[in-house]
Write a protein that binds this DNA or RNA. Sequence first.
DNA 1: GCAAAAGTGTTCCGACTACACCCATGC
DNA 2: GCATGGGTGTAGTCGGAACACTTTTGC
Lengths: 250, 250
Amino acid sequence: MPESGTKQLKQEALANFQVGVDNVIFSVDTQQNRVLVLLVMRQEEPFCRRWSLPGTLVNHGEALENAAHRILSEKIRVNNLYLEQLYTFGEPGFNPWKSSGQDHRQTPLDIRYLSVSYFALVRFEEAQLIGDSLNGIAWYPIKKLPQLAFDHNKILEYGYRRLRNKLEYSPVAFDVLPEVFTLSDIYQLYTTVLGESFADYSNFRTRLLKLGFLSDTGLKVSRGAGRPASLYRFDADAFAPLKDKPLVFI
Amino acid sequence: MPESGTKQLKQEALANFQVGVDNVIFSVDTQQNRVLVLLVMRQEEPFCRRWSLPGTLVNHGEALENAAHRILSEKIRVNNLYLEQLYTFGEPGFNPWKSSGQDHRQTPLDIRYLSVSYFALVRFEEAQLIGDSLNGIAWYPIKKLPQLAFDHNKILEYGYRRLRNKLEYSPVAFDVLPEVFTLSDIYQLYTTVLGESFADYSNFRTRLLKLGFLSDTGLKVSRGAGRPASLYRFDADAFAPLKDKPLVFI
DNA sequence: GCAAAAGTGTTCCGACTACACCCATGC
DNA sequence: GCATGGGTGTAGTCGGAACACTTTTGC
């Protein structure tokens, strides 16, 4: 924390910042077996007509996380959502407008830009994009990313690592699954994100059920041929004791 | 990322930020079996004469991580060090100077403060404090923290959680151990930080050695009574293949 | 010799793996 | 019936937990 009082001489050297929030928003399309990330097409300089992460500058009086929620809800409509802070990027000299014609604000030349990135996971099936691909918003498969604006490829890679870690060590999946779901719904979610590197379906079942935080609703659902699957519900109370433990799924 | 061009109307509402870096610097005193955190005594308002995390405002042209290194090296001299970004705090309305007499800078009233916190682990035995407790700098046992300035207690708690996680899942310990060390050195480090909740010494030994990234130097060291202990060295090359794997120590 | 600390070995048991196999449905 | 996906059971194996035991030092 600053020691402003004793160091008047240094005051001149302090940087002023504009702070933005950039969201890495993931969803998982288990049908097509791919992880998707939400991108928006930039409509202005710099990096005009390039895809980028949805982001915004932080408003006066607005909490960082609120800014993240705001930009998210401008692009997409969802009911369930997992959101957490990812990382703060902000190399000096990285001012998007510094050498462009866009520096039309009441900002001194040496304004600096800081990007606080957020990581989000939403349910693909329920997510409604606001606007369409013509309006420059789209889900992109993580395996086929275009070149993004700014250092967004770096941020995205960082977010993708976090996604896989989160899935292994915490129950984020259940924030993003429907209220009730089958065990193979979960299994497909995991295989899509993490690859096939873990236990087969039958062992996955056994382990997950033994953890004891999935309660059988008694309901069944039939999807085409094959035996109908039981529908389960995530029991937050039963999970609570496991919280903060070095619990590992997969 | 901002969409400044299309939203001129909103420009008025944008916040301007001053960005600071606050360090949570840990060390481990295995002799006395306690985790320590470095605190400094504030010499000015607000929170004058209160302990706080060592921090600084970010200078013009200075990378965030460099600011973290700078404030650290102003307080302490170390050779080995682990440093990583922790979290970014910055609720609106949280401007330390807003309602104090210290607002003597060329800043508009609505300037907002953002704290990017960093997490550091240093070796207690080699760390030399610059200045002494009279100059207001001291190691505090994590179990006996005073009330800190700002929201630093919250930041510290967050850092402490990270410390324990890092120790379990990554080889940070070896960044902070001497070049050569005994197996009980490591064991004591782990027990001090994590409590006694894991394997006994003999099982800990076996597991750690089986991982294969500790090489026996052939040297021995005798510390008072008892059989002399072998000195080991961390072999970064041998560890490399294990990197990024869901490796768990303890 | 005896205490103290380092280091080794052994037994027990639970957990994960890899399957084989049974069940309920659509067609 | 048979294909399809859901669900159960089991034998083999690996690894951790607990603890007894041996080794090497200081005194």
